[in-house]
């Protein structure tokens, strides 16, 4: 047994406590710095309505939204089409923001994310809602708003469940909450998610060109 202390034999650098302490501090500091820098950049990119165009302005709910394959990026991306106002009302950016905000608050307050996933995050008891606005289950463009409103207003009476019996409980939404939730889902479907979900085909809609932005 070697007594440790002053007369201790010198250790190789790679076995020395001091070397690894410095290494830990340096690596942590460096990685944290890189993360902070990337964060600054990412935050400007994901600002709603920023120039990068990844996260749309809230007024995107005034438009038809598509999801089409992009040759260059090699996956599907949202396409913002001509005006197609939600519930027939053109909204200003601020009005649209308030509506979407009410929807987001409602989705949090009713805890939808402990059954559903949004952008793939959440729970796995019910379908992903990233593209719920575009889901072929709503039939076609003209039926969508009515069916969606009806479903969210009373998901028990309008249950589909595909033979599973797994129904959505009634979230008891007020009229305003319901509109907000649908606006929120519409806005969400226009977020550029690098091609997730893969292979998703939206319900039939009118043309996406002409009058777009």
């Amino acid at each position: 047994m070697v007594a440790e202390g002053a007369d201790e034999p010198r250790r190789e650098w790679w076995a020395s406590e001091d070397f690894w302490r410095k290494c830990a501090i340096f690596v942590t500091g460096f990685m944290a710095l890189v993360l902070v820098m990337l964060t600054f950049h990412t935050l400007t990119v994901i600002e709603a309505g920023s120039e990068a165009g990844r996260v749309p302005a809230y007024s995107v709910i005034n438009h038809r939204i598509g999801y089409e394959f992009d040759e260059q990026r090699n996956f599907a991306v949202p396409v913002i089409g001509p005006p197609a106002p939600l519930f027939g009302e053109m909204l200003s950016e601020e009005e649209a923001r308030r509506l979407v905000d009410h929807g987001k608050l409602t989705v949090q307050a009713r805890n939808c994310m402990n059954c559903h996933t949004l952008l793939g995050n959440g729970a796995y008891y019910a379908p992903d809602l990233t593209k719920a606005w575009l889901d072929p289950g709503w039939g076609n463009e003209s039926a969508r708003e009515i069916l969606m409103t009806r479903f969210l207003d009373d998901p028990i009476a309008n249950a589909r469940t595909f033979g599973t019996g797994r129904r959505m409980p009634d979230p008891n939404l007020t009229e305003a909450e319901l509109r907000g939730v649908i606006a929120y889902l519409k806005w969400m479907s226009a977020i550029d998610t690098n091609g997730f979900p893969h292979g998703f085909t939206p319900l039939p809609q009118g043309p996406l060109t002409g009058g777009g932005r």
């Binding site: 893969h198 292979g199 998703f200």
Partner: peptide, 12 residues
């Protein structure tokens, strides 16, 4: 995800 394209129906 791979075949169904993550729709409501594909989920079920």
């Amino acid at each position: 995800r791979a075949i169904g394209g993550s729709t409501w129906q594909a989920y079920f």
